[in-house]
Design a protein around this nucleic acid. Structure first.
Length: 274
DNA sequence: AACGAAACCTGCGCGC
DNA sequence: TGCGCGCAGGTTTCGT
């Protein structure tokens, strides 16, 4: 489901729900969420752990527990709900993946229609070596301009694909890459090699602008998608190209085009983006 | 080593 | 109404 702004919105909601609560029990409804990690040790280790903080790294959520870090990735459709113990909501129940019982009488439910989301528990000392975390690139807010440029300039891959690669830059996904390339006036099909230093700078600047604005508005809710409890974002009202196929470009009036790049639907203005 | 395609899943909207 | 197809905010794995 989500990109950096949506995950950040979820993180803030989770903070309100679970900080200083202790996990007293765990119940699984789909074992695949652990991706091969041992379920018994997961349960044993997480029981009686207190949730001290909820952090975010790229699109990963990090629940900082007393002795462990619970890493959660929502992938396409993962959501969290907080429900009173004993209250059964059939809408939530259908795609329930895992339920954490908290010591305040609530349950934190992880819900995922497509079952793509993943979770694992690591020790604090594993944070810097963890396979998924350690290969993440910097987020646009902190990325080094020269280092990003080196990676882009030395590649024949398409710029759209490069910006979706979390090892190169973390946090952008299919919606915001299309938006950033629009604001940067760069055609998504361009090879990395062809990107100028100035364009590289524009990419970073617009990434920061777009992500910050989306965070301000609580992310984008497209396809009437809601992502944590009943929270839904408002940034979809400001999207320039994503989901606007055949509609008029706000800048030049041309029809927004949609194509496929790296298997992903890609929206752009054929006149504004060169 | 580096790249693109396929795989992982379910649900929805569309055309026939 | 029913069926098949293509599509969906992501990442990992599998071939070449």
């Amino acid at each position: 489901m989500p990109e950096l702004p949506e995950v950040e919105t979820v993180r803030k909601v989770l903070e309100k729900w679970v900080i200083d609560k202790t996990i007293t029990d765990v119940e699984f409804f789909y074992n695949g969420v652990l991706d091969g990690i041992n379920k018994t040790s997961f349960i044993n280790n997480i029981k009686n752990q207190k949730i001290k903080a909820v952090d975010r790294k790229g699109k990963f959520l990090l629940f900082k527990l007393s002795d462990y870090i619970l890493i959660s990735h929502l992938r396409m459709e993962g959501k969290y709900y907080l429900v009173k113990e004993n209250v059964i909501d059939p809408k939530i129940n259908k795609h329930k993946i895992i339920s954490f019982t908290l010591d305040d009488g609530n349950k934190l439910i992880y819900h995922d229609v497509r079952k793509f989301g993943k979770m694992k528990l690591i020790k604090y000392e594993e944070e810097s070596t963890d396979k998924s975390l350690s290969k993440l690139g910097e987020e646009p807010f902190s990325i080094n301009e020269e280092e990003l440029y080196k990676k882009i300039k030395s590649s024949k891959r398409k710029i759209k694909t490069l910006l979706l690669d979390q090892a190169i830059i973390a946090g952008l996904g299919n919606i915001y890459v299309d938006e950033v390339l629009f604001f940067s006036n760069i055609h998504p099909n361009r090879e990395g090699e062809s990107i100028s230093k100035k364009e590289n700078k524009k990419i970073i600047e617009h990434s920061i602008k777009v992500l910050n604005r989306a965070i301000e508005l609580g992310g984008s809710s497209v396809y009437s998608y809601h992502f944590a409890g009943s929270v839904s974002g408002k940034f979809q009202n400001e999207l320039q190209v994503y989901g606007r196929k055949d509609l008029e470009c706000f800048k030049c009036g041309s029809k927004i085009a949609k194509t496929k790049i790296g298997g992903r639907g890609t929206h752009f203005c054929p006149r504004c983006q060169k």
